[in-house]
Structures are given as structure tokens and as C-alpha cells.
Design a protein around this nucleic acid. Structure first.
Lengths: 226, 226
DNA sequence: GCAAAAGTGTTTTCACTACACCCATGA
DNA sequence: TCATGGGTGTAGTGAAAACACTTTTGC
């Protein structure tokens, strides 16, 4: 149909974040193909005719982590003409938030993957470091006004866990009384009668994120901010 | 280098906003090529090997408006497999903010272009309507925390003009005393001793956006919000 | 002199901050 | 019984919201 128009290679790369109850982590892989075989890299793949970019990213994530229905969002395109010395490739970066504990261990081992702290990211191929930096920036910005933090926590979590996550995201200590006051004021959590005693003798109650309550909170014109 | 990998058509489409001192407007074009020749459309073009997406978008904007160095930002990709019935095309949408009065009139006329109010957008080809809606959402969000509004105003503008622009963006009346108080509190405008008498007998002083002051405002850790 | 838009301050309200102690429990 | 993290309330502060009148000037 569109004759004489040039076609190009197009790829997706995925920035995968996790949270291990102490730190936010980034999942990186030892690259298996040339150029740069053996170096640390994001996971990615070329796009073919049969999938949208989002679908392709979902597939990659499933292949490398064993997870489906991961939180996934487009970051931006990277299209400098010479960004890949092999050949011209336009890449679309996606960032994804995962629950570390749900990731199928074998998948990760099979691919020589490793979780890195954000302040210990090794050298990455091509412009992947730039992608990661942009993703971190976006994570920090977005977490402030959207409830994406819950994507990084297990289904049930304690308030201290949630607070710690936000302290990691903002790289800043938060006041526990004010934090509780704020999160409870939104009334978007459901308290369970279970306690997590893994970090204290007293134990902390477990909560679930209540999407219905959250949606009606937003529908009523309120703004979420943590 | 990357053998056996499929290549795809990739295009950019530009959402062009303007402000005519009364309304926010969208610049649309009568499409000249099949499919859908004669229908309203965003401007766009296929990407070739020699340009990054951003460069390609800049070129398109120059060709169709005669403007250089337009404010331009990537919106997102549109990659549904069947989004273009002609052939599979992945499109990257950019949104741009322009000063209507600077746009070269002949460029616009030559291409059968027209400025539409946001509530009078005609039917558009393909998924362009979705792109426009996403762009409007992004404009509203972004205007709140970044000083992008000034990109839509002439170099010199009055406070009532600026307020009207924000009222259009948010679709909401603002209190003039509070608006002035806030914008002046940031100390990011330079007052000129010129008055614009086009809208009142008394005349309103003209101001310029002072990027230096703005940058140091941000550098000092303050947040812009209007 | 009057119509029409520009410009100006004060009070109230509410959300954010800072801050210190008791509770429950396992060891 | 004590060490450890979980959980609670209040007073002070500062920013946002609400609100009405004076100024200027072309007609």
C-alpha cells in the first residue's frame, strides 16, 4: 500500500522494577547475542508484524519472568540514528513493576539475570542506562500521584512495608504518624485480621489495596498523593 | 547485522496546539493521500533511516507551519496491528505547542489546514482522535506542574491573558486575585513598561516569561504549580 | 460621567508538619 | 522484664480559598 517507504527495525526494551522489602531493585540480564554478548542489558526483542508493542512487551516479560498481567507502561522511544552500532534500530522502552516474590525463580536463573540496587547498577549496553535513568525518574514522579506503589508489594502488606517502599522511592525518611494518617484518610485499604510477625514481636496488621474504593475515591474528584 | 528480523513502517504524527487569546485550538489538515484522502487528519510522515523521531517531527512541523524550534514532546506510540487498513504502521505521536500568531499563514493555507476548537474537532482518520484525546489529557496534566503554558502565548503577554489560557486549559474559572498572587509569588515574570490596550481602555501591562528566574526557582527546590 | 476591564488585601479554612509516648509480644 | 517495632493524638504553621472595591481611560 505505502510504496517506496522505508521500513526499519523496531524493538522493545523492558525496565523491570521490584521491591524486596528493603530496596527497590532493577532486573538485568546478561546479553546472549552480539553485539555486546556477555554484558548487562535490559531485556528486549525485535517487533514483528503480528504484535502491538504492548503485547510484545508482555510476551517478553512472560518469557523472562514467568509472570502475566504485569503492570506495564510505555516510557518513551529511543531513536537516535546511531544508537545501535549494529544497525539502525528504534527502540520503545517500557517500564514494569513486579512483585519480586512472584517471579518464577527458574526463569530468572535460566537467563543469567540479577536484581540490582538502584545505586549499584553496572555498566549497560547501548543507551540502556539512559532508559533506566528515565524510568527511575518516571517511577518517582508517577508514584506521587498514582497508586502504582502497590504493584511492587505483595497482595497483602503492612503499613510499615508500604511506608518503607515510599521512603525508597523518594529516597527520604517519612514520619510514620503522618504517613498513616494520610493513607488512611483516603480509605482505599482493606484491613485483614492477619498479622505479619516477621519483623516484630507485636506483629503488624496486613492490608490489601482496595481498587474499588480507590476508583470511587477518584470518581468523587479527589486526588491521590503520597 | 540483525539478520532475519522483520522491518516495519514507522511514522510520526503531530498534534499541534495553539491559543488565540480566547480558546485553545488544534491544527488539522485535509489529507492529500490515500487511504482517506480528503478527510481531516493530523500531520505526519514516515520515518526514514536518516532522522531520529524527534528530528522527523521537527521537520514536519517546519514544513507545515514554517516554524522552527517549536515546543515538542513525545506523547506515545500507537501500534495496534490493524490500526492502519492500508498496511501495518507503527506511529509515534508528538504534541507541540505553538504561538498561533507566529505561524506562517501561507503554510497553513497551502495545506488546507484549519484551527479547530477542542470541542469542535471533526471526525479524524485512523486513531487520530485517540491521539488528540490523549494529547489534551497530557496538556492538562503537564500544564499544572511545568511552565508549558508560556509556549502558547506570545513573547509578551498580560496577566489576564495568561489567566485566560489557564482557564481554558483547566476548563474552569479562576479567581483573579489569587491567580496574580500565585504567579507573582514565583517571581518568574519580567514586567515590561508596555501596555496592551486591545482589550480594555485602562490597558494591561505586558510581561515576559523569565526562563533564568524560572530555572533558579526550580534549582532552589521550589515547585511550580498553577 | 459611565462602562468595562485592570489591579489590589484581608480573613478564614484546612491540610501539612513536627513531635513523644504507650502497646503487644517473644525471647 | 526488657528490647523491639507497631501504633496513636495534638498543637502550630503556612498555603489556598473566598470575597468586594478602587483605578484608569476611551467613548
Amino acid at each position: 500500500m505505502y510504496k517506496n517507504k522505508q521500513k526499519l527495525l523496531i524493538a522493545v526494551d523492558c525496565i523491570i522494577f521490584g521491591f524486596d522489602s528493603e530496596q527497590i531493585k532493577l532486573l538485568l540480564f546478561k546479553r546472549k547475542v552480539e553485539p555486546y554478548s556477555g554484558n548487562w542489558s535490559l531485556v528486549g526483542a525485535f517487533i514483528n508484524e503480528n504484535l502491538s508493542l504492548n503485547e510484545a512487551a508482555q510476551e517478553i516479560l512472560f518469557e523472562y519472568t514467568g509472570l502475566k498481567d504485569i503492570y506495564l507502561e510505555e516510557l518513551q522511544t529511543y531513536s537516535k540514528v546511531d544508537r545501535d552500532p549494529g544497525e539502525r534500530v528504534i527502540s520503545v522502552a517500557f517500564f514494569s513493576l513486579t512483585r519480586i516474590n512472584e517471579i518464577v525463580e527458574e526463569s530468572v536463573e535460566k537467563f543469567d539475570a540479577h536484581w540490582f540496587n538502584l545505586d549499584e547498577i553496572p555498566e549497560l549496553i547501548l543507551d540502556h542506562r539512559e532508559m533506566v535513568d528515565n524510568a527511575i525518574t518516571k517511577l518517582r514522579q508517577k508514584a506521587r500521584y498514582q497508586p502504582i506503589g502497590f504493584e511492587l508489594l505483595p497482595e497483602k502488606f503492612t503499613i510499615p512495608q508500604l511506608q518503607l517502599l515510599y521512603e525508597c522511592i523518594y529516597n527520604k525518611k517519612l514520619d510514620d504518624r503522618n504517613f498513616r494518617k494520610k493513607i488512611f484518610s483516603y480509605d482505599i485499604l482493606t484491613k485483614t485480621d492477619l498479622k505479619d510477625k516477621s519483623t516484630s514481636k507485636k506483629g503488624a496488621f496486613l492490608y490489601k489495596f482496595n481498587k474499588k474504593k480507590f476508583d470511587s475515591f477518584i470518581a468523587n474528584g479527589y486526588n491521590f498523593e503520597l
